[in-house]
């Protein structure tokens, strides 16, 4: 199929109404989990629009730098591909300046939790209505597979041939302690749950956080005994244990050979920051 044909085919699929056809060809490796994440996200937003619950012209998708940073480029909404680690900072400005927008920030593990951790935690603390999606592929892939804050202990990468020697973050617990009012985790094996979670986040008020455990077959999987993309997705499926509630946060760290807890860890309410700041400061809207 030629590029033009692919573009045309994409625009003809109703459920892909929010895909940006002109951005093809995409820049992701074959078998990359980001395709699944994009696919489920686009379907979720399309469904909400069909259901009359969302106006996609008010949707803003912001991303950082890295493989996940490319997500904003494939979405046919107002979108912003920002700097490494800072999508949440930009998203905060967008949301504060125009509160009626439905603002999403996508980023990778390093983007949101290594270089940009501060912004992620601060946004959770403020409970600003931004929907943050972190793609956890266990490494900094775009620069060749460098370990990061979610790389499991002992993992092999090109940069840790003798095994990774740092501890990794327990992401859901970290987000919960920062005050996130919604914390969920799924893997790329959970396409239905992903779509449902995206829909829920779109309609929810307040800071929402989703971690998607994703396969990076080329720069992480093959160094760690996953022969192909599918074997990694299969591993996620087999090791996943669906839980619900904050009592599971303590065990939510991901390690090889141990269960991957998925589901909704936190769902609570708190005053939303944008509403609070306008009201508390008495900002007269022009």
């Amino acid at each position: 199929m030629s590029l033009e044909e692919s573009r045309k085919k994409l625009t003809q699929m109703p459920e892909m109404s929010l895909a940006r056809a002109e951005a093809l060809p995409h820049s992701l490796c074959p078998g990359c989990g980001i395709g699944t994440i994009l696919n489920t996200f686009l379907r979720a937003m399309h469904e909400l629009e069909e259901e009359g619950k969302l106006d996609s012209s008010k949707l803003v998708v912001i991303s950082g730098i890295g493989c996940s940073g490319r997500i904003s480029g494939f979405v046919k909404t107002d979108s912003m591909h920002t700097t490494h680690g800072r999508p949440v900072a930009f998203a905060t400005g967008v949301k504060l300046a125009r509160p009626e927008l439905n603002v999403w920030a996508f980023g990778g593990d390093a983007d949101l939790f290594q270089i940009g951790l501060n912004h992620t935690l601060q946004a959770a603390r403020r409970n600003i209505d931004i929907k943050v999606v972190m793609v956890n592929n266990f490494n900094i892939a775009m620069t060749g597979g460098v370990p990061t804050v979610t790389t499991p202990p002992k993992a092999i990468t090109k940069y840790t041939p003798r095994g990774w020697f740092e501890r990794s973050f327990n992401i859901p617990k970290l987000m919960a302690s920062a005050g996130a009012t919604y914390v969920a985790r799924w893997t790329t094996a959970h396409v239905f749950q992903l779509k449902q979670t995206f829909k829920k986040m779109a309609l929810r008020k307040g800071f929402s956080f989703l971690e998607v455990v994703s396969q990076c077959p080329v720069l992480f999987g093959r160094y760690n005994k996953f022969r192909d993309p599918w074997s990694m997705v299969d591993y996620f499926m087999k090791m996943s244990r669906v839980v619900k509630g904050p009592q599971y946060l303590e065990e939510a760290a991901i390690e090889f050979g141990k269960p991957i807890l998925v589901g909704e860890f936190v769902e609570t309410e708190a005053p939303e920051y944008t509403e609070t700041i306008y009201e508390a400061e008495g900002v007269v809207r022009k």
Binding site: I62, M80, T82, T83, K95, H119
Partner: peptide, 17 residues
């Protein structure tokens, strides 16, 4: 903002909004 990086990032985001 939480730092100056965020301060200018947010201002740029706000400008587009």
């Amino acid at each position: 903002a939480e730092d100056e990086i965020s301060a200018l990032g947010a201002a740029i985001g706000a400008s587009w909004a």
